[in-house]
């Protein structure tokens, strides 16, 4: 199926894909337009993508007038840590839930889901009280724990679901060869689960990278801000620096796109899997 596609099919597929690409790109182009426009206008009658009086002023201001690079550093620090925690712990826990029978397994799986069901807006107050009593106000550690707890349940379920599709005969073979349980997991199964690891990484990354509601509760110093919190500070109650905000939004998306490009190598690793299947 993947190898033979008729030319006619190609045309249809391209038409469909391009249609969806257009829809996903257009609003983002509008954001770029706002970032290139001088002054702080969110709306305009003009439908031009590149405004007549286009300028990079906002991008320059972003990097020179604002402590943007500091925010980038903070965000990178927090996000990378959360991504590592998310991928490592989820790949382990997901494996346990997929392969092993242990007391509390079902309860555990269900409660993972259940943690996601409470409306987060309503939890802000008790979360704040907790963070504050633990003395985690103004520490990245507090943020990292919060974000990891947000990202992990989904990542665990995802990993568990993916491990389920890998035949258990593989570890059994490894065990027969004398490998320990952990070695079998680490050396045999984990490489096969690369596509799921990619998604878990991307998801953990996004959780931490774009979050500002909890960050706004935890961080009281402007030089500790993460990027989304920094962007939020461009908003006033009535007046918002839309140009700067849009420029910041575009800049903050670039690492996400880059990460995805970098990771997509492993997202197509069906080959690896094909080679070990009987």
């Amino acid at each position: 199926m993947r190898h033979k596609t008729k030319p006619f099919h190609y045309i249809i597929i391209y038409a469909i894909v391009l249609f969806f690409v257009a829809i996903s790109v257009y609003p983002v182009l509008r954001v770029i337009t706002i970032s290139l426009r001088p002054g702080d206008n969110l709306l305009t009658r003009s439908l031009r993508i590149i405004p007549e009086d286009a300028t990079f002023e906002n991008y320059i201001k972003l990097f020179t007038n604002e402590p943007f690079l500091l925010w980038v550093r903070n965000s990178v620090l927090v996000t990378i840590t959360v991504t590592i925690i998310g991928v490592v712990l989820a790949s382990m826990a997901g494996y346990a839930f997929s392969r092993h029978k242990f007391p509390g397994r079902k309860l555990g799986l269900h409660s993972l889901l259940i943690t996601q069901m409470f409306p987060a807006t309503m939890l802000l107050l008790p979360l704040y009280i907790m963070i504050s009593k633990l003395g985690l106000i103004n520490s990245f550690l507090g943020l990292i724990i919060m974000y990891s707890a947000t990202a992990l349940p989904f990542c665990i379920w995802l990993m568990k679901g993916y491990y389920d599709t890998i035949p258990p005969s593989l570890e059994e073979a490894a065990n027969v060869d004398g490998a320990s349980k952990f070695t079998a997991f680490y050396k045999v199964i984990l490489p096969l689960a690369a596509p799921a690891l990619v998604i878990a990484a991307l998801f953990s990354f996004m959780t931490a990278w774009n979050e500002y509601i909890i960050a706004a509760q935890v961080l009281w110093y402007e030089d500790m801000f993460t990027i989304p919190l920094g962007l939020k500070s461009f908003q006033g109650n009535m007046t918002t620096e839309w140009g700067l905000y849009a420029a910041g939004a575009i800049v903050i998306s670039i690492p996400v796109v880059a990460l995805f490009l970098f990771l997509s190598k492993w997202l197509v690793s069906g080959l690896t899997l094909g080679s070990v299947k009987e």
Binding site: I85, L89, A90, M92, A93, Y95, A96, F97, R99, H100, K101, F102, P103, R105, G108, S111, L112, T115, L127, M130, I145, M146, S148, A149, L152, P153, I156, K181, F182
Partner: peptide, 19 residues
């Protein structure tokens, strides 16, 4: 089997439920 599984799952569980 359980011991291995519990050890694998515990760190994640502590973080999530702790919060």
């Amino acid at each position: 089997n359980s011991r291995f599984a519990v050890i694998m799952a515990t760190p994640a569980a502590i973080i999530i439920f702790g919060v």
